[in-house]
Each structure stands twice: as C-alpha cells, then as structure tokens.
Design a protein around this nucleic acid. Structure first.
Lengths: 207, 207, 207, 207
DNA sequence: GATGAATGAGCGTTCATTCAT
DNA sequence: TATGAATGAACGCTCATTCAT
C-alpha cells in the first residue's frame, strides 16, 4: 500500500485481491470512525465494503487485525510521505517541523473519519494491542526525534530542554489540535492551523 | 467526593452509603483502566467492589453512567484542587501554570489505573457521550484559558500567539506525558516531569 | 373484604392491618391492569400503595399470590352481590339473568383497571395457577348454571339446548363485551350494554 | 404459510429456508402455549426447534415478533380457509355460520398448544401489541360481521338485535368453548361441539 | 476465492425475594 | 411491624467467528 510497507507482514492474503483488502479497510475506517470499534459490527463493515461477512476473514485474521492494519497503514503513509517530501537529513529543522505538521494535518484534514479513528484508537487499554501499536508508532516518533536532534545540532532549537518531553509536546499539540477539530465538527480547514500550531511549538508561551 | 460537587445530581442512591458508591467507582477505575470499557463486564466490576451485580444498578443508572461519573469525579477533583490551591485571580501566571501541572501529575501519579482510564476514555467515539464529556471537561479548559489570559495581561506570556492553540499545547503536552508514563509502566515518578514539561511549554523549542 | 370470604384462607397476616392489605391489592389492580403482570414490578406496586417493597411480603406470600387474591376478591364480590341482590331460588330466571349482567357490568364498568386485569389474567397458561383460578371461578359458574336450570324448570328457557354451552355462551358474551369496551378505551357506559346483551343471549340470532 | 400471506412482510430472512422459520414458530407455539409467554425463554424455544439461540434472531426481530407472527399466521389461516371453503357472498348465512364454527374448532381441535396459545395471548395488556393484534384480528371480525349481515338481509337472522353484540356473542361463545375444552384437558373432540354451539348461538336461551 | 447462514458465548439489565435493622 | 438495601438468578439480544456450499 505504501512504500514503507515493503517489510509489511500481511499475514493472510498478501497476494490476494488487493481491491477488496482496500475496500474493507476503507469501510472499517468509516464505520469504526463514526461508531467506535465496539459499536462497529463486522457485518456492517462488510456491507459498507460490499463483501460478505466471511470474506473479511480471508483478508484479516480477526477484528483486531483490522484495527491494527489501519493504524499501520495510516502511520505508514505519514512516515512515507515525510520521508518522501522532507529532506530529513540535510534540510532545515524548522522547515522540517513545519513540513511534518503540514503532512499530518493534510492527511487527517481530508479524512475526518480517519482522524477520529486514529485519535480514539491509538489510545488502547488492551495490553497486547498497546504493544503492537507501540511498534507501529515508533518510526513516527523517531522522525520527530530526528527533527529535534537536527534542530539542536544546527543551533535552531534549544539544547537545554528535555528531548523526550519536546517530542511529546510536538505530538501532543498536533494530536490535541486534530481532536479539537473533529469534536467541533471539522468545520474549518485543518491546514489553517499549521502556522499557529508551529508558532506555539517553537515560540512557547514566554513573552 | 469533591467539594466541586455541591450541585452534583446523583440521580440514584444519593443515600448515606457512600462507601459502596466509592467502592464501585474505584473498582471500575481499576477494571476498566486495565481492560478497557468494553472488556470490563459489570460482573467483574461488581466482584472487584465486593458487591452483587445488581447492587451496581442501585448506585448507577447503567454502565455508561459509571464511566461518566468517574470522569466527572476526576475532573471535578482536579478543578477543585486547582481552585483551592492556586490563586487563579491574583497569583503569578507562570506559577499558576506550574501549579496546574503539579496537581495534574500529582493526581494521576499516585493512581496509574485512573490515569489510564482517563487517557483512554476521555476520547470517546460515541456521540452522545462525547457531549457529556465535553460538558465535564469545560471548567478544566476554562482554567487553562484563564491562566493563559492572566499571563498575557501581566506580560509574562506572548500576546501574539493563538490562545486556543496554546491551551491545546498545554493540555496535549500534559496528556501525552501521562500517556507515555503509563505506557512505559509507570516506573518513574510523574512528579519529576513537572519542571521539564513546564520548561518546554513556556520556552518552546527555539534556541 | 366480602362476606363470601368467611372461609377465606388468608395465608399470611389475616389479622393484620387490613388497610395496607387493601392498599396493596388496589395498587396491584391499577399497576398490573395497566402494564400487565410481567411488566408490573413489586416495587412499583409497593410505591403505588405507599408501602415498602418488603411490606408486600408481610401480606402476600409472593407475587402470584397477589394475582390470585385479586381474582378471588373480585369473583367473590361478584358472587356475593349476586347472592345478596338476586333471589336466585325463587325469582324469575329472565330477571336473574339480567341481574347477573347488570352486576357484572356494574362492577367492571366503574373500574376499567379491574376489568382489564380480569380479562387478561383469568386466562393463564401456567398450569398450577389455572387450577387455583378454576377453584375461584367455580361458584360463579354455578350461579350461571343455577339460573339456566331455573329457567328451564320454569319453562322460560329451552330444555333442548346443551346447558354447558349455554353457560359458556352467557359467560363468553359478557366477557367479550367487557373486553371490547376496554379495548375501545372505555368511552361509553358499560351499563348501556346490559339490555342489548341480554337480548342477544335470550333471543339468539334466529329471526 | 397461508395463501393469505402473499403480501406478508417477513422483514428478515424471507429467504428460502422456510423450514427453520416454521420450526421456530412451531416450537414457540408449543413452549409458549404450555408455559406462557413470559415463562418461555428464547433459549427453550430454540432448543425445542433444534437451533441455536442466535438463529432465532435471523428469522424474527425479537421475542414479541414471534408472538405476533404466530397470531398473524393463525388468524390468517383461519381467514383463508373461511374464504376458500365458504361461499360468503352467495351462500346461506346459517350454513356459513356453521362453517365458521367448524373451521375454527377444526383448526384448534387438532392443536391444543395452538389453542392455548391463542386463547391466552390474544388478550394482551401491552398497549403496543394490542394495536398490532387488533389489526391482525380485524379481517376475522369482518367475516363474522359479513355473515351476520347476510343473515339479516336474507331474513334468517333477526334485524332487531345489536349487530356488534351479536358478533361478540359468536366470537365469545366459540372462544369460551375452546378455552373450556383446553382447561378440561382436551379429552373430547372439539368437532362434537359444533352443532350444540351453533344451536345455542342461533336459538338463544328462550323456550 | 466468496458467501452468508448458523453458532453460542457473553453481557447488560431487571426484579422477585430476603433479612438486618 | 415496617423498611429498603442488597442479592443473584435469569433472560433477551448481539456479534465475532466458522464452515458447508
């Protein structure tokens, strides 16, 4: 699905009809995004995808696998696009950060269902899934870390701050902005938030 | 449970037996916090609380009511403590912000189950619950807004930034810090994060 | 409650506060009559009666006992009034029949809840209760039989007809009339139906 | 099931597998007929029908739908057979009446469970179901009305009587006869009651 | 591969009944 | 007597998953 996934382990049906695989995933994003994981019966996802209930199990091990797959594809897409569009190695750190926010808001801004899905389901209390999600999200965190490091090395970012906290601030602020955008009904453009969000991240609160 | 609740409408059993009410809430925090709302049967919560299944319904209208009640009590406690311990009106904005973080991390730092519960379940995809949660969390947001405003007026915080984004940054950063703390097993002290978090919030990334 | 009950076996609390006994029965007639036996919780009956749930069990063995008691009291009242107001032994058969209808419609006509209760709950599929109801209703049937017999002996009623069928016709017609009256909302006076019902019973369909 | 149902709206599973649909209905007639609606768990009906609990819900919306469906099929069958076997338009009114009784007793006479079911559950205290039952039973009432009218027009039945009361007498007498037959254990043949019942209906009590 | 009927474990909730006060 | 909090069995219904076709 995305270049990033060349190491992807698609347990079942990797060679199978990709159209149906995509259809089911898209249907799941929509149905789960709107109703929530536990209020989204497989039967409803299947109907939305235009396949039979049983067909879902030809492409996914179980319901949990659908959820994990969506997160993997989504984060994968984000990571891929960042690698593709941003020169992480040699570019300007500030520019990279703004690029990161732009891509992040760009992907969710055109797909509120996907945004909702991600906001709600990245937070999982089930221990086993938490581990899987951790693995999925790691490369994304690493990109943020990389940008921070580059910024520090190039002297644009402060050296004195806690780098992990900086990462959480970046991620948390973007996350919270997307959440607020959804909860208010996605009425304005997420893209319009890139600049003010970037500004607060970099400048902080201090006068 | 918290002074904030003097207007509290406990529809059922506002009776004397607060002990069982508390026991059920605590059990629910634990069970739901560990397994997730949809993997936490009432029967398990009841057993953990040491009561019969039916007893739960003497104190709560239904399962959803338990979830909402926990969030209300938790946010209520935070808001109460802030009002009690911080001089929001006349105090120093920077100090208020640090106090906010201290209280927030203090409450969750001693109760990882509650932290987990809140992190996961403040994000709800069910539309009706989202509305209720919105109402519950509003006073908390207002406190953050108040601190930001005070900071700007007193000249400690920048006037040029987007105030809503600033609020989301504050909330998102704390949230993300707590989440990370849980996911890594709550092995270090959350209190130790107050200063670095505050520092990043106020100073931002810029060198 | 009715003279007829001097042999009544009030299993519990026969010497107890009769006011509460009556209050519970009346409440049960109302609540069960409107909602049906299985949609009428004891708690609701108790509340309607102004007593605590547990109190109900001081006056009745269990919920079934309430139902049986109401039927017993109701049929008992009917039977008593017939014995009191009609000269079954020496009176005119036609007059007795009309008197029977008048009393029957009179009792239910002023109490639609009781009418509903009786119509629905005289029909019971539970085998054990069916037996008890049979015992309760027997004296009522015997009165009808007695009237028929007297009519035949005095030459006012046909000898050639099947006497049991005649009894069922009398009971079934009254029953059906009361049922129809309730189902249409008890908007007209049941008393107004005495004459036409009597007329059809006695005259039959034949021109 | 019956020709009458060509407009039947079988919301779920109008699928080919009528066998299971029928099996569940028959099982429900038996189990509910013997134990009563509220003492007949779906699990017991399913077991009797030889299917899993969940299967019931592939064929019926809910438990109430089973009850309504049975009544609809039963009354439908009666109405169909009357239309098929009786010349309502041009036949003799007396003959039509006897035919009606014959069919009615014929259907229930071979199926005491169904008779019990119908006797008990046509009387429903639940307001919403009462409306549905009213709709179901209407065509049956109309047939009786039609017979009465035809009788009056052809001069066989009295014009002076109340026609609605006459209908209730006919229905009530048949009903009561079936009820009595069941309550006494269905030991004699219902068919043997056709003539005496007809006789009492037409002749009335008068000598 | 694709289907969808069938399964049955599992859960939220109700409510008759009990019993300590 | 009277109370009403507490109990826990019972039931309607859902839905992830399987498998014969």
């Amino acid at each position: 699905m995305n270049g990033h996934s060349f190491i992807e382990v698609r347990t079942i049906a990797q060679k199978k009809n990709n159209e149906k695989y995509e259809a089911i995933l898209n249907a799941a994003v929509k149905v789960i995004g709107q109703a929530g994981y536990h209020n989204a019966p497989i039967s409803k996802i299947a109907r939305e995808a235009g396949v039979a209930d049983g067909t879902v199990y030809l492409y996914f091990k179980n319901k949990e696998d659908i959820l994990i797959s969506i997160l993997r594809e989504t984060i994968g897409t984000i990571v891929d696009r960042i690698h593709d569009e941003l020169k992480l190695e040699d570019g300007d750190a500030a520019e990279s950060l703004k690029g990161l926010i732009t891509i992040y808001f760009g992907i969710f801004g055109v797909n509120p269902d996907l945004a909702m899905f991600t906001q709600v389901h990245l937070r999982q209390s089930n221990a086993e899934m938490r581990k899987q999600i951790g693995d999925i999200i790691r490369p994304y965190y690493q990109i943020i870390d990389q940008i921070i490091l580059k910024g520090i090395e190039s002297g644009v970012f402060r050296e004195s701050m806690d780098k992990r906290i900086a990462r959480r601030m970046i991620f948390g602020t973007m996350d919270e902005t997307v959440t607020a955008w959804i909860l208010t009904g996605a009425k304005y453009s997420l893209a319009s938030q890139v600049q003010p969000v970037y500004d607060v991240m970099v400048g902080g609160l201090r006068a």
